[in-house]
């Protein structure tokens, strides 16, 4: 199953969900108001839109996500790598590393990540 596409503002909304789920829809709307400056109607609209796309589900006023934060991030990176780097992860990494100086700790973390992928 393809991970559904999530826009930036929707992602910010999902951030709240991921941090707090499961959460009542009312509480979620309130949090969206506090943190995103959204009106309740906007929050409900976005919630409904995301539910239609299978990002979250609202059952008995309790909201939980159907896709995780990592999954979404991965899908975005996949899309980016596919689109801009012809699917080549090394090319992507090279570009990424070239634009930013990585600290030793970050490099170590990357190495561990690559090790884990091999398994």
């Amino acid at each position: 199953m393809d991970t559904p596409k999530i826009f930036e503002s929707e992602y910010r909304f999902c951030d709240i969900l991921w941090e707090n789920e499961p959460i009542s829809s009312g509480a979620l709307v309130r949090l969206a108001g506090e943190r995103l400056g959204w009106k309740p109607t906007t929050a409900y609209t976005v919630m409904k839109r995301l539910a239609e796309r299978g990002v979250l589900v609202n059952e008995k006023s309790s909201v939980r996500s159907l896709v995780g934060r990592d999954e979404v991030r991965r899908a975005e990176i996949d899309e980016l790598v596919e689109k801009r780097f012809g699917g080549s992860v090394p090319a992507f990494m090279a570009a990424f590393a070239g634009s930013r100086r990585l600290s030793e700790a970050e490099l170590e973390e990357l190495r561990r990540l690559i090790e884990s992928m091999r398994e």
Partner: peptide
């Protein structure tokens, strides 16, 4: 712009 996300005070971001 209803779903623009508040960044700070009266500053909002939107795709």
């Amino acid at each position: 712009l209803a779903d623009a996300v508040r960044a700070d005070g009266n500053v909002y971001e939107s795709e």
